[in-house]
C-alpha cells in the first residue's frame, strides 16, 4: 500500500490544485479510486495522482519576504495621472499640443 497525492482541475481553465491524498496499492488503482474519494460532488473536470514519495514540499519560510519587491508587481508603479499630465505639459512646451486634437476612438487608451 502507498499514499498518493491527488490533484484536480475545477474548470477547464483553472490550474491543477492539490485536493488531498488517498491510499491505494498502485497508481492505476489510485486513478480509479480518486474519482469517488475526491470528486464525487463534481468538484472538477480533470484529475491526476502522484505517489506521495515523489511529492516534495519546500519549507514555506523560504517564500517569506522581508525586502520590498514591489518593483516586480503592478503596485510598484503609480502616479500615472500626474505623469501623463507632466508629459502633456512638456508636449505643450514643445509646441506639440496639436497632436491631442486629432480624432481618436472615444474610449481609447484602454488599460490592460
Amino acid at each position: 500500500m502507498a499514499t498518493f497525492e491527488v490533484f484536480g482541475r475545477r474548470k477547464w481553465d483553472a490550474p491543477m490544485e492539490h485536493v488531498g491524498i488517498l491510499h491505494a496499492p498502485d497508481a492505476e488503482a489510485a486513478l480509479v479510486l480518486a474519482r469517488e474519494t475526491h470528486f464525487r460532488h463534481d468538484e472538477g473536470v480533470e484529475y491526476a495522482v502522484c505517489p506521495s514519495e515523489h511529492f516534495h514540499t519546500q519549507d514555506p519560510t523560504l517564500l517569506e519576504r522581508q525586502v520590498d519587491i514591489s518593483y516586480r508587481l503592478q503596485s510598484g508603479y503609480s502616479g500615472f495621472r500626474d505623469k501623463r499630465e507632466a508629459a502633456r505639459q512638456a508636449a505643450d512646451a514643445r509646441g506639440r499640443s496639436d497632436l491631442r486634437e486629432r480624432p481618436v476612438p472615444r474610449r481609447h487608451g484602454g488599460e490592460v
Partner: peptide, 14 residues
C-alpha cells in the same frame, strides 16, 4: 492602434 496611438499623441509623440 486604438490603444497606443492616442497614448503617444497625448504625450506629444508623433
Amino acid at each position: 492602434l486604438n490603444t497606443y496611438v492616442p497614448k503617444m499623441w497625448d504625450m506629444g509623440i508623433d
